[in-house]
């Protein structure tokens, strides 16, 4: 059996999670502080992939990054980057598609911390960054872990968006979920079962470990 879809999926999930952690933390922090019309719009856009059919997102990404015209053409000509039917395209799509799973839990956790925690740190002369690093982040660790694991697990399970923008190119864009579909189409049920079982086990172990590490206090991403 060809294990490359599994490795490709794990690589995609790891890169996506890392990128989302770097970008998602400051975004969640920004969203957690105060309200404005602009913030509401941004938050709505970030949350959209939770409810939008993945094929819709994939379709628009396909349009936007198609090398024949517009942005896709410009990226192709200027930087020689192609997002359609390429691994970096999968990373971009996963980044957008999994963002609510990273930003949501972190934002809720930051909002639930009493405002006086950060205020106390400010009166001690600490900068916003020192406060974020030393006070806020350490006190939302369980939610941070939940966010990381959910983002990773969610990226493992992508299908529609990945199929739309990435297609089904062996070793480039054929991730495990697509390999399952592809195997079934070819009536190769043994391979479909193997891929499915591996995905099932990985996901199960990850979710279980969140509950164990958070001492059964893990929160659902939708809370």
């Amino acid at each position: 059996m060809d294990l490359s879809p599994i490795w490709l999926t794990l690589k995609l999930a790891a890169i996506t999670t890392l990128l989302l952690l770097i970008v998602g933390l400051p975004v969640a922090w920004w969203l957690s502080k105060g309200r404005s019309f602009f913030k509401t719009i941004i938050e709505a856009i970030i949350t959209m992939p939770l409810v939008l059919p993945p094929s819709v997102l994939g379709f628009y990404l396909l349009l936007a990054f198609s090398p024949q015209h517009g942005l896709g053409k410009w990226l192709q000509n200027t930087f020689d980057i192609q997002f359609v039917f390429s691994f970096q395209g999968l990373v971009l799509a996963s980044f957008i598609y999994s963002m609510p799973f990273m930003v949501g839990p972190i934002k809720s956790a930051l909002q639930q911390l009493p405002a006086s925690l950060a205020q106390a740190s400010y009166t001690l002369g600490k900068t916003k960054w020192q406060t974020f690093k030393n006070i806020l982040i350490p006190n939302i660790k369980p939610s941070l872990l939940t966010a990381v694991v959910l983002t990773f697990a969610h990226t493992l399970g992508e299908f529609g968006v990945v199929l739309m923008i990435g297609g089904n190119i062996p070793r480039v864009t054929r991730v495990a979920s697509i390999a399952v579909y592809d195997s079934v189409e070819r009536m190769d049920y043994a391979s479909a079962n193997a891929y499915s079982l591996i995905l099932f086990c990985i996901t199960f172990i990850m979710v279980i470990s969140v509950f164990v590490f958070n001492k059964y206090q893990a929160k659902s991403p939708l809370e």
């Binding site: 009493p114 400010y122 009166t123």
Partner: peptide, 20 residues
């Protein structure tokens, strides 16, 4: 001036201790 520049000692009603 920012709270950092004023550097007042502040005892919060809810203590605002750092749980970590």
């Amino acid at each position: 001036l920012s709270p950092q520049k004023r550097k007042t000692g502040f005892v919060f009603q809810d203590y605002a201790l750092f749980p970590n």
